[in-house]
Design a binder for these strands. Sequence first.
DNA 1: GGACCGGTTTGCGATAGCGCAAAGAGTTGG
DNA 2: CCAACTCTTTGCGCTATCGCAAACCGGTCC
Lengths: 253, 253
Amino acid sequence: MRNSDAGGGVGGAMRKPDRTLIADMEVFQGAGPEMLDAILADARVLRIERETAVFAEGEEAAAFFLLLDGHVRVVRTTPAGDQVIMRYIGAGQLIGIAQAIGQATYPASAIAAVDCVALAWPGSLWERFMARTPGFAAAACRTVGRRLQDTQAQLIDMATGQVEQRVARALCRLARQSGRQTGAGLEISFPLSRQDIAEMTGATLHSVSRLLAAWTAMGIIAGGRQRVTVTDFARLQARAGNHPPDAGGEHGP
Amino acid sequence: MRNSDAGGGVGGAMRKPDRTLIADMEVFQGAGPEMLDAILADARVLRIERETAVFAEGEEAAAFFLLLDGHVRVVRTTPAGDQVIMRYIGAGQLIGIAQAIGQATYPASAIAAVDCVALAWPGSLWERFMARTPGFAAAACRTVGRRLQDTQAQLIDMATGQVEQRVARALCRLARQSGRQTGAGLEISFPLSRQDIAEMTGATLHSVSRLLAAWTAMGIIAGGRQRVTVTDFARLQARAGNHPPDAGGEHGP
DNA sequence: GGACCGGTTTGCGATAGCGCAAAGAGTTGG
DNA sequence: CCAACTCTTTGCGCTATCGCAAACCGGTCC
């Protein structure tokens, strides 16, 4: 089990950020300088330590957040106690927008994958933003829509794909979204355990471990403890579903 | 393969409906009578025959729709050719809202499960609605958000549940949303083949058939060709994994 | 330095559910 | 009333994947 208790770990304030920090966020497009300042005036700046919760599933949705730096994973827990990682969210994205969808409580938990910085607004301001900030509503709608698209794509994967495909796709997605180019390849820029990958793909830790071991041996990926680097993106993509043009016998004895 | 070609089958117009028809739709809450009339003035009324497409995946998103009567299923097709039923949509809901999420093409197909009636607006009007109809943006956002919630719930099912649970949950959901109370129980009010259920749950036709046969024998459900009636909702829910009020300590036969 | 600890790897048996194949059983239309 | 069709049921071998158990590692704490 993970140490992901409570909403603790949300650290103290920093000095107020400059408006240029949020001026190019999609949600605030169309807002003038004075409006941006007003928006910022209502924001708290949070620093969230690694592996602590920004907010927890079921909690009253008292605030919504804009992630300025870091990555958080959005997790839901089943009645049976299984965790499922819905997505990872990177800098520049909104989280905790329960009010956008008319929910009084957060439907999922958000856990910082690394130390993060975020802006927080009281939930009550959501409506004001929706009403007064030009384009905010449309942008929020698109944001939610995009997540719906992603989730649907994942659902399709789960419905039709084998574990190998699902894991390959998850890694491709993460590498594309959060990959940092290094000498060795695209390195996923936050700690990502085999267990995490399993919880993203609906597989078991064991299957994932086997898979990654095989791919490491083939030179498709590299990395150790909570680290994954994609060294051969094309070949990983091939594993993700486009199996036809492939040689190489694989898999155990 | 199903006879679900093209956007054909979209029949001719009916006489204009009365504004009361849409006045209580969530998306048009807050719109005054004259605005409702204006909205209706721009709408076309469509009659869609059973098993024909309202719109097709990949098609340019030229319009969005409000389903007035009937049920449509929203389907996506994988590159490999597998169909996945994302959801069923009933009367009163918006469909084809690709523009809401900033898509130029429909991400899925919508096929009428029964003869349907819908209103259609040119996609170009979306922005006007968003801007001028009070509450429309927020309602649209909530609609998309609710679908996101649903899809996430399904994803969790797929990730953690066995086929039996998934099928049971899918039936519970359908019965709750579209069940018509009859003497025998809650009858799902549109044709629903085993194959459809399979495509909703990521199972095979065969597994679904076996499952339903077993449940029929137990008196949990009833129904024949493309028909499902839930005769014992509580017990079906138990199969779905929630063993709450029930005390039945049963498992596989 | 050695025990400890979270994450990772690996082996192996158990099995759910797929894939294939073919027979039944309602429906539809001539 | 029969033929054709579609949907459904059923049998059976097969394999991907789980579940458990145990060995491994690279740091960390004392």
